[in-house]
Nucleic acid binder design. Structure first.
Lengths: 195, 195
DNA sequence: AGCATTAATTATCTTTTGTTAATCTTTTAA
DNA sequence: TTAAAAGATTAACAAAAGATAATTAATGCT
């Protein structure tokens, strides 16, 4: 794992003492997943915080008609977890699934919470992730308010070029808040504009 | 001010010592505003956290065409502030304006940050507001992904019935991510359905 | 390799939204 | 109180999205 990149992604690491770091690392474990594996189920109260060493993960919601609606995609060097379990002590509203062979480093959410609660110096870690979450959410809301579906798609492909060829378009359509059929038409429109 | 209500809204208050509470209160000040008054400008780096004693406030973004796009409405017994200033140490992306005669209790964001940083026992206060923000944001994103504009409007009027007769419809249209014209049609459609 | 499944595209049609402009209605301010 | 301004509605049209179904393309599996 590229340590430089890690620090760049998670600047708070530099501020942690090696004691803190080891105290944290001894509770982590590695998980190897195959494409399609589900590792956290909608409704579960027990979950972990996952760092993606390699691979690709989606989280999705299953609606009353049994339709799966993808709401997040995360790939290597990113962190994800259930907001419900981590922040609100509620059952996860989403299922987490690997879309590729995936290696995760996980730490149980309850254990992590205890670590953070017991060691105030780790507070910055919690704050870092909460701030990051807020930042991402605010940006997503802005996009829904200010941009058309087409603009949102264009923004998506420039912002996450590494994802477009790795996941089904219908997952992206879900995240943009439109139907897969509509996304297909948008893509056609864009392609024809570039003649 | 109704103290019971305050504790219900902000449960962390109970956990604060009176020393902490007074230390906090001595930095607050009251602001009286008339309808239309702007009290925080887009681009400002200096702002406060505002508790609305009475009245109604909106925050809006002015786009490149000079159009104002309302993104938040807050009324009495609610708290608001600039996420950019408070969390990210960046200039506010939004202007804050009173829509009615409004009384605010404010505390300067920089002062508040120092108070929170200096007193770890106040960390729960910060966490409370960050969690609340995340919760609101996630819910808003869900609505954009899962609900049609009409459903979003219906949800809005059941969730915030106290707002519909106090603010122009066009502000609500902005927050729903649609045009005022479209909202007007939606309202007509809904009215005709109830015949 | 070949079959079955899943995803993506295309087509058709209906519904909804955006845009612009005109007309009412309400609010504001002189 | 009345004129001006701002907000809401309506109209008319173009553009886009939803829904459904059919077709084509891609993927997975044994």
């Amino acid at each position: 794992m590229d340590f430089e990149k890690l620090i760049q992604e998670f600047p708070f690491i530099q501020e942690l003492s090696s004691t803190d770091m080891f105290g944290f690392l001894e509770h982590t474990r590695e998980v190897k997943l195959s494409a399609g594996d589900v590792f956290l189920e909608q409704g579960s109260r027990k979950g972990s915080i996952y760092f993606i060493k390699s691979g690709l993960v989606r989280s999705f919601y299953t609606d009353d008609k049994g339709e799966e609606i993808t709401n997040r995609l995360r790939c290597e060097n990113e962190v994800l977890s259930s907001y419900e379990i981590d922040l609100f002590n509620e059952p996860s509203r989403f299922t987490f699934q690997a879309l590729e062979p995936t290696e995760l480093i996980s730490i149980d959410s309850a254990v992590m919470r205890k670590l953070l609660d017991d060691n105030p110096r780790l507070e910055q870690v919690r704050r870092y992730f909460m701030k990051k979450t807020i930042s991402e959410c605010l940006s997503a809301i802005d996009d829904f308010i200010l941009l058309s579906p087409e603009k949102r798609y264009l923004k998506f492909i420039t912002e996450y070029p590494q994802l477009i060829n790795r996941v089904p378009m219908k997952y992206i359509a879900n995240m943009l808040g439109i139907t897969p059929v509509s996304l297909s038409r948008i893509r056609k429109r864009i392609a024809s504009k570039k003649h």
